[in-house]
Amino acid sequence: MPAPAAQPDEADRFWAKVDKTGSCWIWTAAKARGNYGSFHSSGRKGRTHRAHRYAYELLVGPIPAGLYLDHLCHNEDPACPGGDNCPHRRCVNPAHLEAVTPRENSLRGVASAALNARKTHCDKGHEFTPENTHHIKPSKSQPNGARRCRACRRETQARWKARQAIT
């Protein structure tokens, strides 16, 4: 009777599912919610891992507590559609990953909060300077808070006072 075939070790099993032909190392197997690669380990208590996190821990080391991995290849690609259609979410190249705070990861993205945070002027063209910016504390309706242009607020108040004077 022939000997049973040797089982590939977990790392070999992982790398067999990665296409390293380009700069991005693309995960070719199962995907989890959000189009991220998904890898089920046999060791480590048989957990399912995000493939990019698994690759990072395998080649770089543990991800510091409280930090997320940001895909730098995504940040450098202005043509990327983002969201669940982002092909960079399947990249497992550790050179393309950086451990950052959740806030930094969000602000590097293309969601409305990140786009608003990058704005240097309000919609009417007033610059967001420390003197011209009113910060609104977080609330239920705006859990991350907000900022408002003081010049626009002064203009709005002046229009309101002018209307009140007429009546």
Rank of each mutant, 00 (worst) to 15 (best):
165 A>V: 02
151 A>S: 12
32 A>T: 07
27 W>S: 04
104 E>S: 09
58 L>P: 10
74 H>Q: 05
164 Q>H: 11
99 A>I: 06
160 W>C: 09
161 K>P: 08
10 E>V: 06
102 P>Y: 13
86 C>M: 07
67 L>T: 11
106 S>G: 05
160 W>P: 10
141 S>C: 10
83 G>I: 10
3 A>Y: 09
153 R>M: 11
109 G>S: 01
154 R>E: 08
90 R>K: 02
15 W>R: 03
146 A>F: 06
114 A>F: 10
28 T>N: 02
59 L>Q: 15
153 R>S: 04
50 R>Y: 04
109 G>Y: 00
15 W>M: 00
128 F>K: 07
82 G>C: 11
56 Y>H: 06
101 T>M: 04
114 A>V: 05
87 P>Q: 01
14 F>V: 08
142 Q>F: 14
16 A>D: 03
154 R>P: 05
79 A>P: 00
81 P>D: 01
50 R>H: 14
115 L>H: 03
8 P>E: 04
147 R>L: 06
31 K>S: 12
18 V>A: 04
127 E>F: 00
46 G>H: 05
121 H>E: 02
15 W>Y: 02
2 P>F: 12
24 C>P: 03
49 H>N: 13
95 A>V: 06
148 R>E: 14
9 D>G: 09
136 I>H: 13
32 A>Q: 13
12 D>A: 15
102 P>C: 13
80 C>W: 10
165 A>W: 09
136 I>V: 15
65 A>Y: 05
10 E>F: 06
117 A>S: 12
21 T>S: 15
64 P>K: 06
74 H>T: 03
139 S>K: 09
100 V>H: 09
81 P>K: 08
1 M>G: 08
102 P>K: 05
93 N>Q: 11
137 K>P: 00
65 A>C: 08
38 S>A: 13
51 A>T: 00
100 V>N: 00
102 P>S: 13
96 H>K: 04
153 R>I: 02
127 E>R: 11
99 A>Y: 10
145 G>M: 08
6 A>S: 10
82 G>M: 03
152 C>H: 09
16 A>K: 11
3 A>R: 15
109 G>H: 02
76 E>P: 07
24 C>A: 12
83 G>R: 03
111 A>P: 07
133 T>E: 11
147 R>M: 14
1 M>H: 06
125 G>T: 07
64 P>E: 01
100 V>L: 03
126 H>M: 06
125 G>V: 01
12 D>R: 09
107 L>Y: 08
102 P>F: 14
51 A>L: 00
59 L>N: 11
167 T>F: 00
117 A>V: 05
20 K>G: 07
72 L>E: 05
80 C>K: 01
46 G>D: 01
42 S>A: 14
54 Y>F: 11
98 E>I: 08
26 I>G: 05
163 R>T: 09
45 K>W: 10
157 Q>A: 07
156 T>G: 04
17 K>N: 12
78 P>G: 06
65 A>V: 11
2 P>C: 03
100 V>A: 05
77 D>C: 09
76 E>L: 01
43 G>H: 08
5 A>N: 08
